[in-house]
Design a protein around this nucleic acid. Structure first.
Lengths: 206, 206
DNA sequence: TCCAAAGATGTAGTGACTACATGATTGGAA
DNA sequence: TTCCAATCATGTAGTCACTACATCTTTGGA
């Protein structure tokens, strides 16, 4: 079994997985996460319910399919030069993510995603779990470069707090159907908030 | 229907509720939250499964029975004088809670509680939900006294972060069967950590 | 060509939770 | 005191996510 060229079997497996994931995402965005049953997803994707659970251990995994954004900050810290200020690294990482979201035009999709999450207690719980994992992995990454565990834990928790606050801010600032001008204004406003929030962290941890 | 003197009916209802809650708590602490079914709780309390759900909307409510600790910070802010520094108020509130825990000897029970939570994904999720509610109510309380919403939201998120970090620290610092000396040492160490963490918040938000 | 592994499927079951109908108790009005 | 209506406890039936397990089908490779 080679890693590069996948055989027909593996290709079919990925194909099935993507079919399920696509159908599920569409249904969830259309009707809300809680209003769609796994059985419906299976039926819409024309597979057995068991097949769905073979690929996705829980219903929430159909929605959060391998995005893995919550591992980014830890990775950014590991890839940064040893003498860099962690807060600088984290702010730059966050800003890079923000720019990405504004550039590709994924913003409308993103907002719809967040809306769907906000309408589902189960998805909100899962997002909180992801944030907790972010804190754990980020703390571990910080522990590798400095010994002060309590401080590192606090940095990680504060980064997670900042991200949460800024995401809410973006939702608040972003109009539903934004014109290019509105979008640029929102981006400016958001970046100011980012600067402001990270300034608080930097000053506190100085 | 008077508020003070409860009739026999209401008394019996509370009695049933407490019986269920007590039995449930004991079972959960003994065998872990996930290893006990609601049906077992009902059987042990000698009531119908339906009766359990009449009093407690979800299984987790059997464990977190009306503690309501997560509303404390918002209340502390509302009760504080208008010119007091929010961080001072919150630090004092947190320290008061810490002192309570160390004084009454509830610490062993508390640690067992936290252990049980840590062994159950469902309980951890519920605790995160409580923390989220804390942030919302605290933000609302802060908004009542100062208009800068982003700042208030950040304060609330940072308080929640601090509390999370400090609770972990307490679990780390606290021996399983602490002698009075060990306990005093742990308290000192914890209070130093509290001072340190809140100093970071204060400096950042100055 | 054919076998063994891996994926897809089907069946049966568990556990939390809901809807609903019914039975039992009790507080209060007549 | 009697009796009705509200309220609480109960039982039944069902939904939904999820698991265990047996079976069937496909496919990669000997």
């Amino acid at each position: 079994m080679e890693a590069m060229e996948l055989g027909r079997r593996e290709r079919k497996k990925q194909q099935t997985r993507h079919a399920i994931s696509d159908v599920a995402t569409r249904l969830f965005l259309e009707r809300g996460f809680d209003a769609v049953t796994v059985a419906e997803v299976a039926r819409a994707a024309d597979v057995a319910v068991q097949t769905v659970f073979n690929h996705f251990p829980a219903k929430e995994d159909l929605f959060f399919d391998e995005s893995g954004w919550w591992l980014g900050p830890a990775q950014a810290i590991r890839e940064a030069p040893a003498d860099a200020d962690p807060i600088d690294v984290l702010e730059e990482h966050y800003l890079a993510g923000t720019r990405d979201r504004f550039e590709v035009g994924h913003l409308a999709t993103w907002k719809q995603f967040v809306r769907t999450i906000e309408n589902s207690p189960a998805l909100e719980a899962r997002r909180r779990l992801q944030a907790a994992e972010l804190e754990i992995t980020l703390t571990a990454a910080l522990d590798e470069r400095a010994p002060d565990h309590l401080r590192n834990r606090l940095i990680a928790a504060q980064y997670a707090a900042a991200q949460k606050v800024l995401e809410e801010q973006l939702m608040r600032v972003l109009p539903d159907h934004a014109s290019p001008q509105e979008l640029a204004a929102a981006q400016t406003e958001l970046e100011q908030a980012v600067t402001q929030v990270f300034a608080v962290l930097r000053r506190g941890l100085a």
